[in-house]
């Protein structure tokens, strides 16, 4: 038996909004620790991972690990039927269920909606993702700042360079109509309301596709802050963490490399 109840649907709605433009379908892996998924986009440029830890849920029960193959567009359609303050309960049989049940209940518990989502058999490989890699540079910034930088720059062109030196990050773009750049310095005071922190072991300069950096702005409502981790020649890791360590959405983006 798998049963998981979120107090408010907002949490899962936001997480799905952050991943559904990158992944069409994925296995949601349920274990005693929580709900997680990982999937690459079709061109294998971006890997998206998501975890909702068991502590994110008001009720969480997973007797046996199970994998629910879900079409992201379909689950999003069903969750549109939940008001943001409605609770969401997901129920599935852990013995080869062919559908998962979604129950939405309003705050006064006098309106209860039931939906069944058909599950799919999805053949997906689990990839080994190195944890806590020794990154050359890590920058943390308010997620609203992230949205502004990459929505602005990706309008100019799709080749965005991130260069991080001591205490400064430079984001630049080259496009058909021209180019642009933006420098962001580490904020001086720890009391600053919207701090930018930059930790550099070695300066790093890498180029990435702007289309993806802009797509990741869909995760901004998840988290007040975002962390970008860079190592020359390796994928860029971007993390949006849910409050209270309830989980995260992480993206790994392949760099553009010199020919």
């Amino acid at each position: 038996m798998f049963e998981a109840k979120l107090t408010e649907s907002t949490t899962i709605k936001r997480v799905l909004d952050a991943i559904k433009d990158l992944i069409q379908q994925a296995n949601f892996d349920c274990s005693a620790d929580g709900l997680s998924l990982q999937a690459m986009d079709t061109p294998h440029v971006c890997l998206t991972t998501m975890t909702l830890r068991s502590q994110a849920f008001e009720v969480y029960r997973c007797d046996r690990p199970l994998s629910m193959g879900i079409n992201l567009s379909s689950i999003s359609k069903i969750l549109k039927c939940a008001a943001s303050k409605d609770s969401v309960k997901i129920v599935a049989d852990d013995e080869g269920a062919d559908c998962a049940e979604f129950i939405f209940e309003n705050e006064s518990a006098d309106r209860i909606a039931h939906f069944e989502l058909k599950l799919m058999d999805i053949d997906s490989e689990h990839l080994s993702i190195p944890e806590d890699s020794d990154y050359q540079a890590i920058i943390s910034m308010p997620s609203a700042e992230y949205r502004r930088i990459f929505s602005d720059l990706s309008i100019i062109g799709d080749t965005i360079t991130i260069e991080i030196n001591k205490n400064t990050a430079c984001f630049s773009v080259e496009g058909d109509i021209g180019n642009g750049s933006l420098n962001l310095a580490q904020t001086d005071s720890a009391d600053e309301k919207n701090p930018v922190t930059i930790n550099v072991k070695e300066p790093v300069k890498m180029t990435f596709p702007g289309k993806y950096l802009n797509t990741f702005t869909k995760a901004v409502p998840i988290s007040e802050f975002v962390t970008l981790c860079l190592t020359d020649g390796n994928p860029l890791a971007i993390e949006f963490s849910l409050p209270d360590e309830a989980g995260f959405v992480r993206y790994f983006l392949a760099p553009k490399i010199d020919q």
């Binding site: 294998h44 440029v45 971006c46 890997l47 993702i129 790994f252 392949a254 760099p255 490399i257």
Partner: peptide, 14 residues
């Protein structure tokens, strides 16, 4: 401008 790489060389199947 650089060529877009893919992730297949970075993340191996478990």
């Amino acid at each position: 401008m650089g060529k877009q790489s893919t992730l297949t060389s970075f993340f191996r199947p478990l």
